[in-house]
Each structure stands twice: as structure tokens, then as C-alpha cells.
Amino acid sequence: MSRRYSPKVVTANRLREGDVVYLTADDQWSPHHHEAELIEDEAHAQMRLLHASAQKLTVVGAYLADAKAGPNGPEPVHFREGFRARGPSNYAHGKQADLRS
């Protein structure tokens, strides 16, 4: 019996800046969670993770995080990923400030 694979995004921190980034379908690293590639197949996820982990001069600590489809693209599932996508809750620092347009 195979359980349904819960969808994933590939995420990491940028080597130089340390900020959180997501792997997009066209092989870019985006600071926006909703621009990430939502991966629904386990084998494909492993391949994308390998691809990400090989980029040793760009990112650190790549891993697969649970995500779900939303109206504007993938959304975090766990609250930890929510904080990574937004920034800390005590100050308007991190993405919530940097990405404000």
C-alpha cells in the first residue's frame, strides 16, 4: 500500500546572505515561497533535492519541506515554514519587510 505523497518544495538558505530561498521549476532560487515548484512525486522530489544540494556555492542546507497548493502558488504547511517564509514575529524584519513592494 503506498500512501499518498504529501507535496513538497525544495528550500535552503543562501550561502552569502543566509536568507531563505525556494527552488523554482525553472531552476532559480526565489525568496518567495509561492514561486517555488510544488513537487507532488517522490522520485522527482529526490532528484530536485540532489540538484539543489549540488549548488554548494549558492545555498546551504537544502531540504524538502511540506507545502500545499494555494491561490497564488505553494503555501507552507508547518508553522516553522511559515516563519521562514515571513520572518520573525517580534519585528518587521526579514522577508516581510524586504519583499514589501
Partner: peptide, 25 residues
């Protein structure tokens, strides 16, 4: 930064100098 050290090699060195990688930075 120029790739001569991998993260696995660099991590213990940065920790010895008080440098962590946290959630956002």
C-alpha cells in the same frame, strides 16, 4: 566563498568562531 571548502568542512570552523546559521540568517 570560492568553493575550496565545502559546507561540511566549513561548518565546524564557523561554529568555533561563534557563527551559526539560523532560520532567516
Amino acid at each position: 566563498l570560492d568553493g575550496s571548502l565545502t559546507e561540511e568542512e566549513f561548518r565546524p570552523l564557523r561554529l568555533m568562531n561563534g557563527l551559526y546559521l539560523q532560520l532567516h540568517a
